[in-house]
């Protein structure tokens, strides 16, 4: 039972992080490799601010959301839009966006590494206090509960938004066919910016919650999470909301299982192995639909 709880908590963190990546990848075709860096730097900003003053829980989360959204917008305007402007075809554009993301991600990483000397940093100065409730033989921390609830709410909200709203429809149209979308009168640029901002906000939020529950992260934490989030998305199927939900909790379950069965040093291999397995057996993921191609 305690293990199941760990799965749900860990899965919720993955979900929050992967949701942002899945959103941009599934709709505006941007696999943002600076997502991990944005995640880390939001926490780092929080850490710097908390050095100056003590803040309660919610404002810290808001800092994460704001910093994440802002950085994501910056990356979109300064890097991805420039790349797309110059790209000659879709294949090279995809590749350059991946490489550009990796390149841009070095900057926040360098700043954080320089400041912390690559040591772990956390949000200890917040007035937030960790509580643990004991229900039967279950131990639930308040931050775990908050994380799970937040992830659930945000996932539902996002799924509804994509399905119901005008922007959601437009975004899905872009994801399916750029030309159709432009015929529908979609303001591609504005929508892309909004999507990136939402995605970055999710990264920032995930960062704060992750750090609150773990105590501290290192500047390099984002990189590992990036590959794991990729595993979650691939597992469920690119662009599928149900898919990313499934992928996140499935990965968490596998990792917790491996953790209980082995000494623990193999955990990192789980996500990498899963990526392989899925790509070999079912490259479209569990919920992915097959692409229809015409030449």
């Amino acid at each position: 039972m305690q293990d199941l709880l760990s799965v749900v908590t860990l899965g919720s963190i993955y979900l929050l992080f992967a949701l942002g990546m899945s959103l941009t990848w599934g709709t505006i075709d941007i696999l943002n490799f600076s997502h991990g860096s944005i995640f880390m730097f939001s926490v780092f900003t929080g850490y710097l601010i908390l050095d100056l003053t003590t803040l309660p829980f919610l404002p810290v989360l808001l800092i994460g959301v704001a910093v994440g959204a802002l950085m994501s917008l910056l990356v979109q305007v300064l890097a991805f839009e420039q790349i797309l402007k110059r790209a000659t075809n879709k294949k090279t554009a995809e590749m350059q966006i991946l490489i550009g993301g990796i390149g841009v991600a070095i900057i926040p990483l360098a700043i954080a590494q320089h400041h912390t000397k690559s040591n772990p940093f956390g949000l200890r100065e917040s007035s937030f206090e960790l509580h643990t409730w004991v229900v039967g033989d279950l131990r639930i921390t308040n931050i775990a509960a908050i994380t799970v609830v937040t992830a659930a709410i945000l996932w539902v909200a996002m799924a509804l938004w994509l399905r119901r709203s005008r922007q959601g429809l437009a975004l899905r149209a872009i994801g399916v066919d750029t030309e159709v979308a432009s015929l529908m009168g979609v303001h591609r640029r504005r929508l892309a910016l909004a999507t990136m901002a939402v995605s970055g906000a999710l990264a920032g939020l995930a960062g704060m919650l992750f750090t609150f529950s773990l105590g501290a992260i290192t500047p390099e934490s984002g990189d590992t999470l990036l590959v794991k989030a990729f595993a979650c998305i691939i597992l469920g199927g690119i662009g599928s909301m149900r898919g990313v939900l499934f992928g996140s909790y499935f990965l968490a379950a596998c990792e917790v299982w491996v953790l209980t069965q082995t000494s623990g040093s193999w955990v990192e291999a789980v996500s990498f192995g899963l990526i392989f397995l899925v790509l070999l057996i079912r490259p479209t993921g569990v919920f992915g639909r097959k692409e229809v191609r015409r030449t």
Binding site: M95, L98, V227, A231, A269, F272, G273, I275, F276
Partner: peptide, 19 residues
């Protein structure tokens, strides 16, 4: 596999070597 998924599969391969 194509494009990005191929790239990520090879990244996974690299990281598995590390593990």
């Amino acid at each position: 596999l194509n494009g990005l998924t191929l790239a990520m599969a090879t990244v996974a391969f690299d990281l598995i070597i590390g593990v």
